[in-house]
Nucleic acid binder design. Structure first.
Length: 189
DNA sequence: TGGGCGATTCGCT
DNA sequence: GCGAATCGCCCAC
């Protein structure tokens, strides 16, 4: 088993951390798999929740790195982020897609879907599959129920514009595992 | 294969 | 009141 990611792993620029999360293994309560798609959000970025300063919702982003920031999206879905950089810098990586490898039965049950490819292929989907809710907000990533393992090799990374945002759309801050069948959407060649 | 739309909560204007 | 870091379904092509 590869080593657990230390808290210091997140105490760097989101643009360093985000691509290094591709290929890492994320389990929540024993269910999850290999991270294949993420997006980086920096506090100077108009598309980031932290751009306009702290609020009750985004408070965790302004705390120390290595914690989970969970928020509700479109009134329905949960989205999972990892807080990065020094305390107060309010930057985070959005986890967008996972290749399921562990706890398949539990994830299928929660998703109500038999298709493995659709289990975790989107930020809202993977939270439902892994059982992530607001209860996980502000929890440390180096302790249960989270289990985050460093990747083994150096996978090929593809980049592209982020999805579903209206501001700062030009930045290529979406990172994916090249050729993965489990992405939320394909990367443009 | 891809675009349009409804569901539904919350933060901010 | 508006719009959002989404998803799944429906429809046209």
């Amino acid at each position: 088993m590869s080593p657990r990611l230390a808290r210091q792993f997140f105490d760097r620029s989101v643009h360093e951390v985000a691509p290094e999360l591709i290929g890492a293994t994320l389990l929540v309560g024993g269910a999850g798999g290999i991270i294949v798609e993420v997006e980086a959000y920096h506090h100077t970025d108009p598309a980031a929740h932290s751009y306009r300063g702290p609020t009750p919702r985004n408070a965790v982003m302004f705390g120390p790195p290595g914690f989970a920031y969970v928020y509700r999206s479109y009134g329905i879905h949960w989205c999972l982020n990892f807080v990065c950089e020094a305390e107060g810098s309010a930057s985070a990586v959005l986890i967008r897609a996972i290749e399921p490898t562990a706890g398949l039965a539990a994830m299928r049950r929660r998703r109500g879907l038999p298709d493995e490819r659709a289990l975790c292929s989107g930020p809202g989907k993977l939270c439902e599959a892994l059982g992530v809710t607001i209860k996980h907000n502000a929890l440390p990533l180096d302790r249960p129920p989270f289990d985050l393992r460093a990747r083994a090799g150096s996978p090929e990374i593809v980049t592209g514009p982020r999805i579903g945002i209206t501001k700062a759309v030009e930045h290529p801050w979406r990172y994916g595992l090249k050729g993965s069948r489990f992405l939320s959407k394909p990367f443009k060649a």
